[in-house]
Design a protein around this nucleic acid. Structure first.
Lengths: 226, 226
DNA sequence: CGTACCATTGACGACGGTCAAAAAACGTGG
DNA sequence: CCACGTTTTTTGACCGTCGTCAATGGTACG
């Protein structure tokens, strides 16, 4: 249970996080153009619980995970963030969860204080932000649905979600370990492993190394995931 | 598995859903003043999956439930909405879930088309809406955490959540049946019942009728919920 | 090539789902 | 207000799934 402790701030403290120009997006009205693009490394932390919520983040490249630590010390991953995803929007002064990087990548950082101004100035950006929040809410609901099914259904659903979110062809390069899958699905690594083995036996998937998974039978996998 | 089928629209089709005056909140800048206050009855449906998303709703009085129906026909309740809660914000043209009423009550209905204008005109309202979305996201995370714990922990956590959200003193008047609690917690009614019985045996709660629950030992209940 | 970490497989037990029945709560009409 | 019937909740017995503990096998990296 040793958390990676590299602090994200150490990677980018010399950067200028201010918005380009006057703090308002140009008339292209795209989220792509907002904020500064900051590189990050595997294991670096974007923020932790109770940290002051100064920025909103949008992944440009790479993968991150968002998680909570329970009172007993169990870690529950609530979301994996892939390029295009936004995280760090809060309702209070502080962040309510931890987010750190699973891979190297780059992230847009938008000052929270500037956000309301941007939203007012640009309805299109506002729309995109709203949509993103609603989409995340919907994904969480999918996660909730998945968490009240059997282990095999969860793993099958997980594979489908990952293949949709970060695969081009039928092969998925998982950026996370079995431990992290287990923490996301509310299972143990043994059960995750067993479920994957079952899917292999059924010829629904095949693997080359633990992290490269090929989906052989999308139809049956979807049938199991329900 | 008989869903209540009363259509919300039948209750209010003669109402005027337009915003007061010019569609912009007055300078008090409060969500309370937006939209029309519409009464609803137990079992009436606000909207279903795939319905066109025309309004955003804010509960004034009463309780609602939001849920999904899985491919196999299982119903998963993802949220209970209490006074002050907002629901119906979407990222596409249609709603992604069902919401209907557990009790009689009243709801503010705000035209979706008018929302972006309101948000632009009034930063305070904008702020409130953002905060509400973020809060719901955070509640969903709590739900996700809860769904990967034991049955007794889930039920204990549920009681705490409900007592916080809709109780004044130590007594909780549950607006939902065991079936609905089970669908929320991803358990069966038998397991919910057994868990409640255990808590009674431990003198942590007491009941008078199935829906009136008194929390005798908040400390120990919280300890179990973790 | 060796070592350390990660993943897989096995054995076993506890927790929660299923099926079934009893008990309690609730609504209705006398 | 009480008696009745229906629905909801509780309790019981049994079994399957998943968590736990342990050992083996595989992979990546020095």
């Amino acid at each position: 249970m040793s958390l990676r402790q590299t602090d994200f701030v150490t990677h980018c403290k010399n950067e200028n996080f201010a918005l380009p120009k006057s703090g308002v997006a140009d008339d292209a009205g795209s989220l792509d153009l907002l904020g500064t693009l900051v590189p990050f490394k595997t294991g670096s932390q974007f923020f932790g619980e109770n940290d002051e919520a100064r920025y909103v983040y949008r992944i440009s490249t790479g993968i991150a995970r968002g998680y909570h630590i329970t009172a007993e010390g169990r870690r529950q991953i609530v979301a994996f963030y892939v390029p295009g995803d936004i995280f760090g929007v809060e309702y209070g002064k502080t962040h309510k969860m931890h987010v750190d990087a699973l891979t190297d990548g780059r992230v847009q950082m938008i000052k929270r204080a500037a956000l309301s101004g941007i939203v007012q100035a640009d309805p299109y950006v506002s729309e995109q932000l709203w949509a993103n929040m609603a989409r995340e809410l919907h994904r969480d609901h999918g996660h909730i649905l998945r968490l009240s099914t059997s282990a095999r259904e969860r793993v099958a659903g997980f594979l489908i979600e990952m293949s949709e979110r970060l695969s081009n062809d039928g092969t998925v390069q998982l950026p996370m370990s079995r431990q992290e899958i287990a923490e996301y699905l509310g299972l143990t690594i043994e059960t995750v492993s067993r479920s994957l083995s079952q899917l292999k036996t059924m010829s629904i998937i095949s693997t080359s190394g633990a992290r490269t998974i090929r989906i052989l039978d999308h139809r049956r996998l979807r049938q199991i995931a329900l």
